[in-house]
Amino acid sequence: MEQLYKKEISLFKEKKDWFSFLALVGLIAVLPPFLSDRILTIFTMIGIAIVSVHGLNLLTGYCGQVSLGHVGFMAVGAYISAVLTSKSGLSFWIALPLAGLGAGVAGLIFGLPSLRIKGFYLIMSTVAAHFIVIWLVIQLHDITGGSDGLAVPKPKIGSLVFNTKAKYFYLVSFFAIISTIVAHNIARGRVGRAFIAIRDHEIAAEVMGINLWIYKLQAFFVGCVYAGVAGALLVHYFGFASVDQFPFIDSVWYLAMLIVGGMGSTFGAVVGAICLKLLDELVTIVGPILAKAFPAVAAQFAASLSLIVRGVIIAVFLIFEPRGLLHRWDLVKSYFRLWPFSTEETD
């Protein structure tokens, strides 16, 4: 019995799970030398998006506190790390955890309204959080470089500097994998269940002994720690920090990743991040071709196509599969497991 429980709650239930995990790590290790810089950049951006979207998933997907200030919290982490490494000369490896913590504390502060307000009003307060952060960055010109931006050194361990695309890809992959495992662990444990309880039925959760204050704030904290780390990874990749890297609209796209992948599922968040980032790339390939085909509207086309496609994708998912790709995949899997005996979808 004990053994069965152990197996049921473990991350890798079967040998094949271990195998696919090791295969993934192997691929990440072996592939970069064969990939172009452009592909590596895409993969790196996907990795950073995965780290960030896990945070939003814990906050919004699991705990149900919708945040549109996620990119603002990324900016907090990014600037903490940028300032500490470039001005104070701290090592990246010390600055990064501090960036996570700083963003987490900022999340706590802006999470305080969640104890009193819900839904739409809470969303508005997180929107405010984003603009307050950006305003502060610009105002604190002497520290952050304001709208001029700030040069940021590349991370290094000893004499190994992460200065090429391939090296940085390894670094980001490391964080993406660790953050996925940690997010999964939090989600399946005591804290994760408390988050879901709050999301699904706040009143019942409280009556069942869950302290709403503590757990909502914890959700904001942990969600923003993820955002801070992702933000720091982003500016260290570019070697430059500027407010333009943190546009408000990106918060919406992070939510879109959750919708596409599946809210409240760790692997759904990964799938969503990958899909939306790849979709962007697809648009940049298809865009010029379409622009040639319709020269009359070519000028606006390239710029707006990405927005249009993403908007359509979000709408389509909300209408046809609000629970995301991962849920759809589970349905397909269970259909084929029972095939040819299953006649209808099972849940």
Binding site: V191, R193, A194, I196, H201, I203, M208, G209, F221
Partner: peptide
């Protein structure tokens, strides 16, 4: 009915063990 609709039967009951458990983030 105030159940956590997104969780399984098992997880719903497990969530009620919250007060007896001591794990944190």
């Amino acid at each position: 009915i105030g159940l956590y609709t997104g969780l399984t039967v098992f997880e719903n009951v497990m969530a009620a063990r919250h007060i007896y458990m001591s794990q944190n983030l």
